[in-house]
């Protein structure tokens, strides 16, 4: 699998969520994703960026443009050094939240992408990696 291009964005404020949406959209257009695929990936990115801001006080998003056997994809890695998630299974459930949201962020984001991987250690941080293929 080849990584064609990478970029890292900081998420420290609500304005950065908008910025993440815009950059992910631009990359998805450049990779010639369909409008529905663009919308799904941008929406997933928006959910995960906001989660990071709300629950970890911020973090970073790394974008990677991928190519594998003629297929094009985008991979996004959300990394924070927040409190971590004690029970990932519970956190993935729709409707579960420790904050003031709807509890749709993690489970919802997973449904919008082709690949979803979450690693978390309480007290250390969380890393969520998603990918969508064209």
């Amino acid at each position: 699998m080849g990584i064609l291009r990478t970029e890292k964005l900081a998420v420290d404020s609500a304005d950065d969520i908008v910025r993440v949406r815009q950059v992910v959209r631009a990359w998805a257009i450049e990779r010639r994703f369909s409008l529905v695929d663009q919308t799904k990936l941008v929406t997933a990115a928006s959910e995960l960026a906001r989660n990071m801001l709300l629950y970890a006080g911020g973090g970073t998003v790394e974008l990677e443009s991928l190519e594998e056997q003629g297929r094009h994809g985008l991979r996004l890695t959300f990394e924070d050094h927040g409190p971590g998630i004690a029970d990932i299974g519970l956190a993935m459930k729709d409707g579960y939240t420790t904050g003031s949201g709807l509890g749709l962020g993690l489970g919802g984001a997973k449904r919008l992408v082709n690949e979803f991987d979450i690693q978390s250690r309480p007290g250390v941080g969380t890393s969520i990696r998603i990918a969508r293929w064209r």
Binding site: L35, V36, Q38, K40, T43, L102, L104, R111, L112
Partner: peptide, 14 residues
């Protein structure tokens, strides 16, 4: 609402 937004919103669970 745009069609792509509607599709995404329902899959998101909303």
């Amino acid at each position: 609402m745009r069609p792509a937004v509607a599709i995404t919103l329902v899959e998101l669970g909303m």
